[in-house]
C-alpha cells in the first residue's frame, strides 16, 4: 500500500506562537520566509491556524498568561505534530530564567522535539531545526500526545507562584476519570 509517512516531511505547515519572546526570534522567522532563505522551498506554509499545522514553532520563555494559550493551541493541532522550541529562552528560560512571571521554557508544558538555541536564533539555525524536525515528524505516530500539566494548582508562595511543585501530567488525570 501507499506509504503516506514519507510525504509528511515534504509539506510541513507551521504554526507560530509567541509565548513572551522579545520579537528577535519572531522576526527571524519572517526573515527565514523571505527570499534569501525561502523556507517555502521545503513546502513550508505559515498557516497561522493550529488545525492545519504540523510544526508548532514556539518562541519565548512562556509567560504566566501565555501558557494557557500555548496548551490550547497545542491541543488543537492534529497528530502527528512536532514542537520546536526556538531560541535560548524558549529552551531553558535563558536570560529570563527565574523571573517571577516566567515559566522557564516550554518543555514544562508541552513535549518538545527540537530545541534551537541562539539569542536570537538566526534563519540558518531555524532552517536547520525545521529540517531536523521533519525527520522526527516522519517517525511520529498518530497517537495523541497530551500536554504536560501546568496551571492546575497555582499555589502561591510569597506572592510568587511556585511552579515546579505543580507540574503533573494532564494525561494521568484523564486516565483516572
Amino acid at each position: 500500500m501507499f506509504n503516506f509517512k514519507k510525504y509528511r516531511k515534504k509539506s510541513p505547515w507551521i504554526l507560530h506562537y509567541n509565548a513572551g519572546s522579545c520579537n528577535g526570534c519572531d522576526i527571524e522567522i519572517l526573515a527565514a520566509l523571505s527570499p534569501k532563505y525561502d523556507l517555502e522551498r521545503f513546502g513550508v506554509i505559515n498557516t497561522g491556524n493550529p488545525k492545519q499545522s504540523d510544526i508548532f514553532l514556539v518562541t519565548g520563555p512562556v509567560t504566566f498568561r501565555s501558557r494557557e494559550r500555548l496548551v490550547e493551541l497545542y491541543t488543537q493541532m492534529p497528530e502527528p505534530k512536532v514542537v520546536i522550541a526556538l531560541g535560548s529562552c524558549t529552551c531553558t528560560g535563558g536570560v529570563f530564567r527565574d523571573m517571577y512571571n516566567v515559566e522557564d521554557g516550554i518543555d514544562r508544558y508541552i513535549p518538545v522535539d527540537v530545541y534551537i538555541p541562539g539569542c536570537a536564533a538566526s534563519p540558518e539555525l531555524i532552517i536547520d531545526g525545521i529540517v531536523k524536525a521533519l525527520d522526527i515528524l516522519e517517525q511520529k505516530t498518530k497517537k495523541m500526545e497530551k500536554p504536560l500539566k501546568l496551571f492546575q494548582d497555582a499555589s502561591t508562595k510569597d506572592g510568587i507562584i511556585n511552579k515546579r511543585d505543580c507540574a503533573l501530567k494532564v494525561g494521568e488525570k484523564d486516565e483516572e476519570n
Partner: peptide
Amino acid sequence: VKEYNCGEK
C-alpha cells in the same frame, strides 16, 4: 475540538 478562537477560551 473547540473552534479556533485565537487561542482564547
